[in-house]
């Protein structure tokens, strides 16, 4: 699997990453970033197992994805730096601004992504940039919920 990922994401050939979960077809990157490992989050699609918050815009735009995370308490962040007391989510988008992936920041400051129906990996944020996911297009943050620490490294 690692060779497959290095083939898809060339930056993973030169930056450290590791698999942190088995593959799982029940949730995707947006679900993972939203702390939901039981649903495939996406605004479009006719499969009955695809979930999108009912009050969120059903459109394939960064604004719609941002609105979903706004409902979860996130606001736009200035950058991807690790800020004590906050957790962050990064949205990737293709050159046309179409969202492709989301990553969430770990307590260490590194990032975690669920790759489609494949594994979760821990990685450097921009290591997933490239032809498949495009580039980081939006960083969001929210205060850590009291009593719940930042997402620990696996």
């Amino acid at each position: 699997m690692s060779d497959y990922l290095r083939a898809l994401f060339p930056e993973l050939r030169t930056t450290p990453f590791r698999l942190t979960s088995p593959s799982d077809r029940n949730y995707n990157c947006i679900g993972w970033a939203a702390d939901d490992t039981n649903n495939w989050w996406w605004p479009e699609g006719d499969a009955p197992t695809i979930y999108w918050p009912p009050s969120a815009p059903r459109e394939l735009t960064l604004a719609a994805f941002g609105a979903v995370f706004s409902m979860l308490g996130y606001t736009v962040a200035v950058d991807e730096s690790h800020e004590p007391g906050f957790e962050k989510v990064a949205l990737f988008a293709d050159p046309d601004g179409i969202p492709t992936d989301a990553a969430r920041q770990l307590a260490s400051g590194r990032w975690s992504s669920k790759l489609g129906e494949a594994e979760d990996i821990e990685h450097e944020l921009h290591a997933l940039a490239g032809e498949v996911y495009g580039a980081v297009a939006l960083i969001l943050k929210r205060p850590l919920v009291q009593g719940r620490g930042p997402i620990p490294d696996s």
């Binding site: 990157c29 947006i30 989050w41 479009e44 790759l115």
Partner: peptide, 14 residues
Amino acid sequence: SWDTRVLSDPAKIM
């Protein structure tokens, strides 16, 4: 599977 395994967009997958 090779081409879509890491994608989230059902339109691209299907």
